[in-house]
Design a protein around this nucleic acid. Structure first.
Ligand SMILES: [Mn+2]
Ligand SMILES: [Mn+2]
Ligand SMILES: [Zn+2]
Ligand SMILES: [Zn+2]
Lengths: 148, 148
DNA sequence: AGTCACGATGCAACCAGTTGCAACAATGCG
DNA sequence: CGCATTGTTGCAACTGGTTGCATCGTGACT
């Protein structure tokens, strides 16, 4: 699950600041973590990392920052098949949208880009007259090394 | 969000029974509710309905029955964009797989069947050598009556 | 730099979902 | 039809996420 570092550093901070969102120490820390993350992180992981920088951050602030980012369409939220409890995972939104596959045996998460995914979105926009803000496709099953 | 009643009544009970799963009063009630539901239900709604039939059912039993059904691939779990909290919604799995669109303004949920969805699944199976057990596509945005 | 308004934070109380465990009951067998 | 086995249930304790509220601090304007 490699997330390429395509964006300029601090782009989440600048993006939000340019929309008039206030920047606090806590937010800067959280945004930095999400921006430079190399895998899909859950809220607890983000909290732990944030507290290394800003020991006073509360988990409430993590959740509130995550919904801020969701509201602004800057991150995607994933279930990854809720393989370990109900928690959700987060990744910054990139121009390359992709499908997530989670192996129900080994837990490995793989990403896959497809024309058909974009095509399906276009079809929904057109045929259902539905204006898409977020689209998420998640698959559970067995990866090539795990299936019998 | 109309769910057609295609299956024979009691098919969840028979299906599970034939796999050697024990049938209890509580389960019978819960399965009946899911089977005859006309919309996507969340755990709390299922609990309330079940308690009308079997006042003693505990919410734990609802959650355990839901994971049983998920394990056996008999229901699908949906986020519906987590529009109201973190809760999940459930629907019985039908032969007609569909995409779910949730309007972020009015909350309306619509379903859409598409060849491209099946095509995308086939592509994943083939190109990624990934054996699919569950596939879920969820879209958030603005329905035709809500967009400006 | 000093003031201010209002958005953001932390805390505590709350609610939804999970897990451990002892009591219970569905099913199969004598 | 009663008995034993073993899976299922309800309860209580717990964990993860949310909400209300008083306090705090950012960023705008002087
Ligand atoms: Mn979810
Ligand atoms: Mn549906
Ligand atoms: Zn695997
Ligand atoms: Zn709408």
């Amino acid at each position: 699950m490699p997330l390429p570092h395509t964006e300029a550093p601090g782009y989440l901070v600048s993006n939000l600041a340019s929309r008039g969102v206030r920047m606090t120490r806590q937010r800067r820390a959280i945004l930095g973590i999400i921006e430079t993350a190399s895998h899909h992180l859950d809220a607890a992981q983000i909290l732990r990392k944030a507290q290394k920088q800003e020991p006073e951050v509360d988990r409430v602030t993590i959740y509130r920052t995550l919904s801020l980012l969701k509201r602004h369409g800057l991150i995607d939220e994933l279930d990854l098949m809720h393989l370990q409890g109900e928690k959700h995972f987060y990744e910054r939104k990139t121009p390359r949208e992709h499908v997530h596959m989670t192996c129900l045996r080994c837990g490995r998460v793989t990403e896959f880009e497809s024309r058909l995914f974009d095509g399906l979105k276009k079809q929904v926009q057109k045929e259902c007259r539905f204006q898409i803000a977020v689209a998420r496709m998640e698959i559970g099953g067995y990866c090539s090394s795990c299936r019998a």
